[in-house]
Amino acid sequence: MPRPPDRGPTARSPLLRPTRPAHGAERLRAYGVHPGGLPADVWQGLGAALPPDVGLAVFDLQTMPEYFEAALTGAQPAISLAEMARRCMLELTASHPPGLPFTLVGWSFGGVVAFELTRRMYAGAAPLGLAVLDSIAPTPDFKRTDELLEPPLLVRWFAMYLAAKRGRPLTAEPGVGGETAEDGLAEVLATATATGVLPADTTMPGLRKLYDSFVAGLVRNNRLVLPYEPGWSDRPLTLVKPVRGLLPDHGLLGWDELAPVRAVASPGDHYSMLFDPSAWALVADLISRPAVSTAA
C-alpha cells in the first residue's frame, strides 16, 4: 500500500493554532478546544467577537492521528481522553506567555477534553474560567455505549449537522422521526433536496454514507468518554446551552455532578451556534470577563 500523501487534516497540522492575535498588549488569552465535525475555522467567529486585548488560539483535536483515524476506521481509538488532554497541556505550557491569564472554551466533546485539561493544572497555573459549549458531561447517566445510540436521536443530530455543513436551515429537523435510521434519513433526504440544502439528485446511498461518517465520529467520541471517570472538581464551569442543543430537556447535561456549574442560554442549535455571531458574542462576553464566568 502506498504511503498516505502529505495531505489531509493530520498532515503537518499543528495541534494548537493561533486563531486571532490580540491587538496591542494582550490582557487575556482564550483557548478553544475543537473536536472536529466542522472545520476549526468556525472559531474565527469567536475571534471576531472578542475584545481587542484578548487573543485566541484553538486546539484542533483532529490533528491527533490516533483520534482522526479512529473515526475513519471505526476501530477503538488508540488514544485516551486523558492523553489527549495531556498533549494539549504540553502544547499550552510550551507556548503560553508566562503570567498571562487564560481561559478555556470547549465545544461538544472538546468541552470534556477542556474539563480534563483544567483538572490537570495546578492551582497557580489554572485557567481563570472554563466554558463548555453544549458538551455532555462524562457521567454515568449521560454516557452511551454504541448500543444505546438511538437512531431517532442520531438522525435529529445529523439533520442539524447537515444544515450547518450546508449553511442552510433544514426546516423539518424538529419533526424528524421514525424508529429506524432509514426512516429518518428518508425524511431528511426528502426535505433537504426539496429545500435546496442538498442537490436534487442526491441519492439515499450518498446520504447514508454521510450519515455513517457522522455517526462514526460520535461513536469514537463516546468510546473515549466511556472509560473516563474524572470525579468532582471544585473549579467552576459555565455551560453554554443552545436553545436547540443536543439534549434540550436534560438541564445541566450532567455537569452539576462534576463541578460547580451555571448555565447560560444561547441562540441556535448544537452546530449553528458556531456560525451565529450573537452566540459567539455571548461566549466572548463570558470568557473575556472570567471573574463573572467562574461564579457558581
Partner: peptide, 22 residues
C-alpha cells in the same frame, strides 16, 4: 462523502474508509 456513497452503490461494495486518503 455523498459522492463516495453513490460510488459504492454503483460498485456494489464498500471502499475502505482510507481509500481517498491513500
Amino acid at each position: 462523502l455523498i459522492l463516495a456513497g453513490e460510488l459504492e452503490s454503483w460498485l456494489g461494495f464498500e471502499l475502505e474508509a482510507t481509500a481517498l486518503w491513500y
